[in-house]
Nucleic acid binder design. Structure first.
Lengths: 338, 338
DNA sequence: ATGAAAGCGCTAACAT
DNA sequence: ATGTTAGCGCTTTCAT
């Protein structure tokens, strides 16, 4: 934070300690061995002068910034907050700091991220696309050091950390069927989004599972939600309750919408799970604390975070591993809402 | 993300466009006027070569990084997620990206932030201290370009954005009294923290307000909570319900704990607000969606974010304004839980 | 174990 | 409107 022109340099520190910048650098980075006595003198000089390293200079020299970028749709969605938090923790182990970029799930912003316009000064990128999908491989150009989160959307040579969207959505849907529900709706469809997006995959698995159980889904049971926020869940549930023949169970494609749905139910005096069962997806911290506590899918968020950061670290280290696709485990967490 | 040694420089771009790096720089930063024709040629060359500016070099030269740091206790607390999101939005207007650093509310980490060890490559710092307080002014040394969030903890010459903790806590407590409650408890005390911390200020205001109403507070009605997380709220409420004479109203010092408290109530079949009223503090997005919806304090989070970023921008711009203390408006948001 | 010096890629002061 | 050049503060190769 030193102002330009008034900054203390390594040379200044060296001058005070009676050594050159070279030795100061060695002391501070700890790579080479330095005489303990010299070391002490240097550290004292650092302290006296209030020296702070200029990381731009270091980065320019080394080609490393010590920062990675996490590009996600939106911190209004609990899952992404949870993910960001976990990724920050994992990144700490690699001495990385994390810059979070919100794309708003908008295609133009996602392209901007990949083009580097909104992601400078960063050693690598962990990116959860939403609008981008197959056919957009051209935007990958120049992005080595990239890990894609979500489904394997690109054929190209990129690391993917893949959540078992299909399997998990089947699990959730089948659970509702097994509990005896027959009028099952879903909130979170988004027709304007790639077929590889979570929205499309979960919807497809939902439909398939119901079909497999010889259950039909009226069109009005598939509720579109553009943003997957609290209000989308509430609005979706309100719409379902307004139907002549409301569902007896609802699969919300994320927990945040499920919270909204639960609220809409309670506001109308409809009981969950007795009148309408609700199941979510994500198992975010809040899911345990709603009324009733939310039955949901645990998608392996901790693994996603760890794998993503480790994969990126391998890329940055330049290990010549071929692009990998990693899968995380999912499971059903039964609580009270369904 | 270009690897060292294989990176394309401005000179390369210039060579292809038939100009020097100087002109390329002018085109990309848009400061000086460039002939449209030249401009086009340069931009085409940028595209052809897949050129990406080296921001370390730029920062080294200009002394600006385009990044600010936001240091907060913890993203597990909804308020800080909400705040971070809003600050990111405000920062965008200044073309800043934001690095979030979690201090875990731990003193050593807060000192590390101020000392710059965990906050390099940044044009400024927005810092919500928790463990640090009066008497720790010495850690401010070398931190121009700093905005402190929370109460005015430092006498030193630093910008503060101050939330009206005392006034707001009075508002909340008085509301409970006015609604006829007499056995009022609080969750969120933290004796190990500075007297200027939110925990101490809110507790003090809580006590004062009850005293002013001639209401006594048994010691067991003041529940300590170290982390202010969901589980702290739930544990606190569980403890209160286990008392021989449980309270009929509880003031939770943040919304996140209030969510936990509401859960503890529901888990035991205790009704809110009928049996125990609950009031929170923060008015985070989720507060509107709990069952019952949470009555809480709106502390002016939007203002905090805007003021903090604007104040920091003024510091960075080097306007010689004297250190300012800015206050935000708070108000009571009545919903259903109290 | 330490010194001397080159150079990372960019911007800005000085030219023309 | 564009070319030339110095230099930001650091790391690292070549010395000793």
């Amino acid at each position: 934070m030193a102002r330009k022109g008034e900054s203390v340099t390594m040379a200044d520190v060296g001058a005070r300690a009676g050594v050159t910048a070279r030795t100061v650098s060695n002391v501070l980075s700890g790579h080479t061995s330095v005489r303990p006595e010299t070391r002490d003198r240097v550290l004292r000089a650092v302290d006296d002068l209030g020296y702070r390293m200029n990381t731009s200079a270091r980065s320019l020299r080394t080609g490393r910034t010590g920062t990675i970028t996490l590009a996600i749709p939106d911190l209004m969605i609990d899952y992404f907050t949870d993910l960001a938090r976990r990724i920050m923790t994992e990144a700490e182990r690699h001495d990385w700091t994390v810059v979070i970029q919100q794309t708003g799930a908008r295609r133009e912003n996602e392209i901007a991220i990949l083009s580097g316009a909104r992601r400078q000064h960063s050693d690598g990128l962990i990116f959860q696309p939403h609008a981008l999908g197959p056919g957009d491989e051209r935007y990958l150009t120049g992005n080595d050091r990239l890990v894609i989160l979500g489904e394997r959307i690109f054929r190209g040579p990129v690391d993917h950390v893949t959540m078992a969207n299909t399997e998990a959505a089947q699990l959730a849907t089948q659970y509702l069927v097994d509990r005896g529900h027959r009028r099952i709706a879903a909130i979170g469809a988004n027709p304007r989004v790639a077929t590889t997006s979570a929205a499309s995959l979960r919807l497809e698995a939902f439909r398939d599972t119901l079909a497999k159980n010889d259950l039909s889904v009226p069109a009005e049971y598939i509720v579109t939600a553009e943003e997957w926020h609290l209000r989308d869940g509430a609005a979706g549930m309100a719409r379902l309750l307004g139907l002549p023949r409301p569902p007896d169970a609802v699969f919300c494609f994320n927990d945040t919408m499920a919270f909204g749905a639960l609220h809409a139910l309670a506001a109308r005096g409809v009981r969950a799970p007795d009148d309408v069962a609700v199941i979510g997806f994500d198992n975010v911290p809040m899911a345990e604390f709603t009324t009733p506590p939310l039955t949901t899918i645990e998608p392996g968020t901790a693994q996603v975070a760890k794998q993503a950061v480790d994969l990126l670290a391998a890329r940055v280290a330049g290990r010549g591993t071929p692009p990998t696709e990693v899968f995380t485990d999912c499971s059903l967490v039964v609580r009270k809402s369904a």
